[in-house]
Amino acid sequence: MNYKTTKILWKTFVWIVLIIGTIITLVPLFWMLSTALKSNAEVMQFDMVWWPEDPKWSNFVEAFTTLPFGEWTMNTIFITVFTIIGTLLSCTVVAYGFARFNVRGNKTLFIILLSTMMLPSTVTMIPQFVIFRELDWINTFYPLIVPSFFGNATFIFLLRQFFMTIPTELEDAAKMDGLGTMGILGRIILPMTLPALTTVAIFQFNGAWNDFMGPLIYLSDPDDFTLALGINFFKGENNQVQWNYLMSASVISMLPSLLIFFFGQKYFIQGINLSSGIKG
């Protein structure tokens, strides 16, 4: 066997493995969509039904009318939007401080910031619950939204890394022209930081949209549920799970994240590379 044949065989092998991986990755999602469109009888069938004979798109309507999925979606959107606003405002300012003001205390505080990323959330979970209970914030959205206005270690780190890559000449020039710190941040830095801010917004969107433990602790009234809680509630409520409705609700809940991912892919890649400390 000469060099060329070996190379072709190897390439073929690589492609086959990658395609098998693709199938394994996609089949569960395909199965979810197909189940979402099945009739009640087809769901319970013991033989494989890859695709329903007569796809019931009405299942989506059914799922949203039998349970308040519409309301849960609105709750989720509300919480998600406000945490994105809070995260962007707080993390930008804090990250800028850490990136540009090399004064005493910067290094130490930055190390503290990094080490909070290692702290298991359960250490602060119970006291936070107690504090929010004292404030009478249980069964409100406050415990889920307010903390986002006080920064998030991962995003501060990510934005700081990004700020460090921006040369300081422009800022120095702006300072000469008498622009203050907030002016520099708003007019010079932010326009250049838009890609990184988009990355943070997207990650925060996914985090808030999919958050389970937070809503689980603070929201107990079904009217206040988020989609994540609602879907779990729907699953646990019936002994005989109606998988087709459950899957159609799941499909809907995944759709926004998927759409954002397909349109904002490069921001994901950039974010992952920045946060793992590797140049993007």
Partner: peptide, 22 residues
Amino acid sequence: FRTIYYIPVIVSGVAVMVLWSY
């Protein structure tokens, strides 16, 4: 391929766990 392999990370959440229980 990278996009496809990343999809499960995107949709991770309750919906995915419910899907896997099924």
